[in-house]
């Protein structure tokens, strides 16, 4: 076993991981959103978005319009929600905007989903980003990996195997 070779290989692996991380964080800075690409998890926006679709977000806009599809986070809940803006109220002196959202496939608005006693979202605080672009179905692989333990183990095994077998 050649120690130098092993170390170089390890360094290459670190390099690949670091560049992926840099790409993600760079995209975060450009779009001003802490999660610029999201995968749809629920069917509440069907037929526009299905489970597994990939959405690209943009958060440099200061105000949202009615009809925009936004991603928001509720306090104490980890899963971001993708829904459409139903109403907006903007105070032009302070620049603060209140939004009410609704899923296209839901019967009612989102007030029951919001944090306790809240009846509006704040554009600045709650919105993760506005959906600008769309790729169908490709994100299903991440859902598959995160929700199926055999898929997760299989992927880990594949990575380990390829690391063992690959010779420079």
């Amino acid at each position: 076993m050649n120690l130098r070779l092993e170390l170089t290989r390890f360094l290459n692996l670190c390099f690949a991981l670091a560049s992926a991380f840099m790409f993600w964080k760079g995209l975060s800075i450009v779009t001003n959103s802490h999660s610029p690409i999201v995968v749809v998890l629920s069917g509440s926006m069907e037929p526009a978005f299905q489970r597994g679709d990939i959405l690209f977000l943009w958060n440099r806009n200061e105000l949202n319009k009615v009809g925009d599809v936004v991603v928001y986070e509720v306090d104490n809940k980890e899963i971001p929600i993708v829904h459409r803006v139903l109403r907006e109220h903007v105070d032009e002196t302070s620049g603060k905007q209140l939004l009410l959202t609704k899923g296209d496939n839901n019967a009612g608005n989102d007030i029951p989903l919001y944090a306790k006693r809240k009846i509006y979202l704040h554009k600045e605080k709650d919105i993760v980003g506005t959906v600008k672009g769309y790729i169908p179905q490709l994100g299903y692989i991440t859902i598959w990996i995160s929700e199926n333990k055999y898929a997760k183990m299989g992927l880990m095994g594949l990575i380990a195997l390829s690391a063992l077998l690959s010779n420079e």
């Binding site: 037929p47 526009a48 319009k65 009615v66 009809g67 459409r84 139903l86 109403r87 907006e88 109220h89 903007v90 105070d91 032009e92 002196t93 296209d104």
Partner: peptide, 25 residues
């Protein structure tokens, strides 16, 4: 085109605070 979403909105200004602009579906 997969679908189109059509919506009828109303725009108005605030009564007590005229600086508030609103748009509702």
């Amino acid at each position: 085109t997969k679908q189109i979403f059509v919506y009828l909105t109303a725009e108005y200004n605030g009564l007590k605070k005229p600086s508030v602009k609103s748009e509702v579906t």
